[in-house]
């Protein structure tokens, strides 16, 4: 998985490419470990093909952090396969998906 992070003031844009799974979730975990001063995180899933429960875990942790920081987290350009996973797990209700 490729992670491309762009920081602009208090906004963070994370472009993901490939598979977010058991083997790669830790990379994303590192990227989102320290979110001090961040008010808005945008995940661009345009090139993300696959997500497993390990990936969901990172997204959940990140969302909780943002809630604690009174910030926003948005997921953009979600592919159908991934949207299905969000739907199956009820994640579509707790994430902001655009």
């Amino acid at each position: 998985m490729k992670i491309d992070t762009k920081k602009d003031g208090n906004s963070l844009l994370i472009n993901l490419e490939g598979r977010l799974d058991t083997n790669t979730f830790q990379d994303l975990e590192k990227e989102t470990d320290n979110l001090d001063g961040i008010k808005k995180i945008t995940f661009n899933f345009e090139k993300l093909d696959y997500i497993s429960s390990a990936g969901l875990r990172v997204l959940l942790t990140c969302q909780k952090k943002m809630n604690n920081l009174s910030g926003f987290m948005i997921i953009k350009n979600v592919k159908e396969e991934i949207q299905e996973v969000f739907d199956m797990t009820g994640f579509s209700d707790i994430l902001t998906i655009e």
Partner: peptide
């Protein structure tokens, strides 16, 4: 099975894997 209707604070990621396996 995990409760997929819980709010974000109550959410735990455990059991989601099996749930995904079953659903697919």
């Amino acid at each position: 099975e995990p409760d997929t209707t819980l709010s974000i604070e109550e959410r735990n990621v455990g059991g989601l894997g099996i749930l995904l396996a079953k659903k697919n």
